[in-house]
Write a protein that binds this DNA or RNA. Structure first.
Lengths: 334, 334
DNA sequence: CAAATTAGCGAAAAGGTTAACTTAGGAATA
DNA sequence: TATTCCTAAGTTAACCTTTTCGCTAATTTG
């Protein structure tokens, strides 16, 4: 592979001038520029990105940590981030945290050790204090789908409380009085907020939160199955089920149908996230849209602006969920 | 950040010795080792990975290209690869090719320009010739879910033909005589092979392939919808539908149900890939298991063995699909 | 006990680029 | 004409490690 030395020699200019041509940050006369470009073409020169990194202390890489590589939620998130950064010539280094404290710490250390210019992480198990500590290191770190007290400028988050509220409010508007709820794991802030919204909707409609109609799931299909099973076993009647995400809604639906319960006639179900599959399960799932793809884009833009000095980018830190009405909720009013 | 100089000074040894301690490839006396380790701890020294890369011309990174970041298929593939490499301390740089020739080329160039030690790519639009050319460059390149003539040692592939055969053979065994087929895009080799398997099964059972019962889809839910719509419009009767992947099967199921056709009573459906969701759609989808997670693991192992000299790893280049029987196919024999 | 081998360690080059600083020369200004 | 200013381009240090080569001292061998 040709080096900058050979190019400079062939073009009859200094190293610095070749560097200037590749980086287009300083003016070079048209004549010299042409000479250098010709030499580069002739030698098929490509700058050695490692050497560039060492000299400029920039790696042009952004570390990403998500809980899982699989699943529609993280897929969309990564797609949003990658699309934006790739266009800017940056690359993404991806690792996983599996929603476990130790592994999330490890994952972040791993990315830091790779000299990323910035980190975009979706952490679920780490405390705000820990994140505040991390923020003191010299690698800028940004948080997806989370709002950390004191680091709002580094966060892109969704108003989960509002989403939870919208879901339950809609169910109530459809005439339901007995409403069951399958929550996400309560160590996750998203889950907590969604549940808070649910409770607020109940309260505003003078309904009480009944623990017999509550189950804490784990955001997976299996969690949804277990949840509905447990709720049915409680023998407390309910006509509607709110699930804190679509996967659990899907799991619950499968279980319910296996037991001869008609959907949505005998049970209304609403989900959360609006993952791709939600419109392909039967009945089509009414849910809350979570604009995670756009949020991914925005996180990447935030990095481009803060770290790579791309100005003129408008950043939106807070996103709002919206209700998506399909066919899984039955109107039983009057 | 402390450098190796400061460590060497504090420990009273040379640079080389510090390097030897971090890399543990040459023997160092216990005494010196301790001195160096103490100094490292005191200074909180972490080797600069960029400088390591420059000096050793190893980046410890593996470039991955998949068609999409979203979707269960690629999710599993990435998860398999990342898990294995991460454990070995290597990191993955991920980019996308979107199944388009230009973008796949770009993606690969992009990864090559990042000085990856190796590439693992899932390419769909590039020709075998192009891949052979790529192989001549000095970055080793491996192919997921594809078998390239002449580069078998660099490929991890699935016997798609067998999968296609198994699906249709099973359908036939259940007594079906009129079988429709929604294929994947025929520029993709996987799609071609699955179709070949389908045709072989028909032939072995003395049935003819009828173009009125054939539709070329695009591996998405929408493709499945369009496919079944077109097939129904053809007015040629069929009792079973074979889909070249689960997403299309799911799309077709939704459409069919919207039109009052009972599943599986009036129509049997079989998919391909066994994506997570296939067991949560209704009726549970009978399908062909595609061990893409294991294949991801294996691709990573192949890289560890070839590129990072981790010996004693047994490589399996060819994987076999298996039939997963659930509830979407009805037995109508006798 | 002398000779041969080996273990342990140091010195210095190499790796390819960027960035800070410097210089040369011509244009603009006084 | 003398001075200042600016542009274009060159010089050189810095970035931080690994690796090769060679030396010394310790160990093994005959």
């Amino acid at each position: 592979m040709a080096t900058i030395y050979e190019v400079s020699k062939l073009a009859g200019v200094s190293l610095a001038t070749v560097s200037r041509v590749t980086n287009k940050n300083t003016r070079v006369s048209d004549k010299t520029q042409k000479k250098v470009e010709d030499a580069m073409a002739k030698l098929d020169y490509r700058p050695n990105s490692i050497a560039q990194s060492l000299a400029s202390s920039r790696t042009n890489s952004v570390g990403i940590m998500v809980s899982e590589l699989q699943g529609p939620f993280f897929g969309q998130m990564m797609a949003g981030i990658e699309e934006e950064l790739r266009e800017a010539g940056k690359h993404v280094i991806i690792t996983t945290g599996h929603s476990e404290e130790e592994r999330e710490k490890e994952g972040i250390d791993f990315l830091l050790s790779r000299n990323c210019d910035a980190l975009i992480v979706h952490v679920e198990a780490l405390s705000d204090e820990y994140l505040l500590q991390l923020n003191k290191r010299d690698t800028p770190i940004y948080f997806m789908s989370r709002s950390v007290e004191g680091l709002q400028d580094n966060c892109i988050s969704l108003n989960n409380e509002l989403g939870g509220y919208l879901a339950t409010q809609y169910i109530i508007e459809q005439g339901h009085k007995q409403i069951a709820y399958i929550a996400g794991p309560q160590f996750k802030l998203d889950s907590q907020d969604r549940l808070l919204g649910h409770k607020r909707a109940l309260k505003e409609n003078d309904m009480v939160f009944n623990t017999d109609l509550y189950f804490e799931g784990n955001f997976t299909e299996t969690g949804g199955r277990n949840g509905i099973k447990s709720l049915l076993d409680n023998k407390t009647i309910f006509s509607a089920l709110v699930c804190a995400n679509d996967e659990m809604a899907s799991g619950a639906m499968t279980y319910v149908r296996e037991h001869g319960i008609k959907l949505p006639e005998a049970l209304s179900i609403i989900g959360f996230d609006n993952i791709i599959f939600s419109r392909h399960i039967h009945p089509k799932l009414t849910t809350i849209d979570n604009p995670v793809f756009e949020m991914g884009h925005m996180a990447a833009k935030l990095v481009l602006k803060d770290v790579y000095q791309k100005d003129k980018i408008k950043i939106k830190h807070f996103f709002e969920p919206t209700l998506i009405i399909r066919n899984s909720v039955r109107d039983i009013s009057d």
